[in-house]
Amino acid sequence: MKTIAFSLPLISLIFLLSAVLSAARSFDYFYFVQQWPGSMCDTKRGCCYPTTGKPEGTFTIHGLWPNFNDGSYPSSCDKNNLYNASKIKDLLPEMQKTWPTLACPRGDGHKFWAHEWDKHGTCSESILDQHSYFQAALKFQKKANLLSILSDAGIAPDGAFYSTKSIIDAFSNALGVLPSVECNWDESRNPQLYQVYLCVDKHAQDFIDCPFYPKRKCAPEIEFPAF
């Protein structure tokens, strides 16, 4: 029986090529995630309004995240192309309204946006540069006006409880794709409508049915708190 001997340099080269191919692996789709600020603030942790003032009472952007079809995702793909506010100067007024930070201590949003670009946006560079990335998220927020969709279905942020199915059906009927709804819990442990996941094709053109739905715990009846 013959054995095949590999030289140390060849083995090193194989590992190097494997690492390069893994890093270059293209993502398959985006998650576009919006959150309801009333639910984020109505928790034990609470929230802080940004230095620009209290956000409007609408669903706000959390992020646009590249994902793989198996549910995993790339992260922090290019540390040489970090967030640069000067590249999105024309988008900042709209981002302050529709993509505000609610983290404490209060801030102006740049730390939040830097995190989103550095961790997620840099993994979409083959499709979107920094300006296009943020611009795409703003486009999808307009295209999926979640509060308006719920209002048309008779579902309002009035502190009442609604069936999770009715909320999902409202989004699905209006957008033509099936979303995923994530809940959080207030201090009394009531489940609340917190985040809505929609999937976007890898070229950031339109919504698609999700290849993989994130597993999120939710109750059959959930609260839609005021903000």
Rank of each mutant, 00 (worst) to 15 (best):
A5M: 09
S7Q: 11
L8F: 04
L10G: 00
S18L: 14
D28V: 08
Y29I: 01
T43C: 01
R45S: 05
G46M: 03
T58F: 10
T60D: 02
N67M: 14
N69E: 14
S72E: 07
P74R: 10
C77P: 01
I88G: 02
L92D: 01
P93M: 14
K97M: 06
T98E: 12
T98V: 02
W99V: 02
A103Q: 14
C104W: 10
C104Q: 07
D108L: 01
G109C: 04
K111L: 09
H115Y: 14
G121M: 09
T122H: 06
C123L: 11
S124P: 00
L128S: 03
H131A: 04
K139E: 07
L146K: 02
S151R: 13
G154D: 09
G154P: 00
P157M: 12
P157H: 13
A160T: 01
F161D: 10
S163Y: 08
K165A: 11
S166F: 05
S166W: 05
F171Y: 15
S172H: 05
S172C: 01
A174V: 02
L175C: 06
P179R: 06
S180N: 08
E182Y: 04
C183Q: 07
R189A: 08
N190F: 04
Q192F: 11
L193T: 05
L198W: 12
Q205N: 14
C210R: 05
P214M: 07
R216F: 03
E223F: 05
F224H: 06
A226T: 15
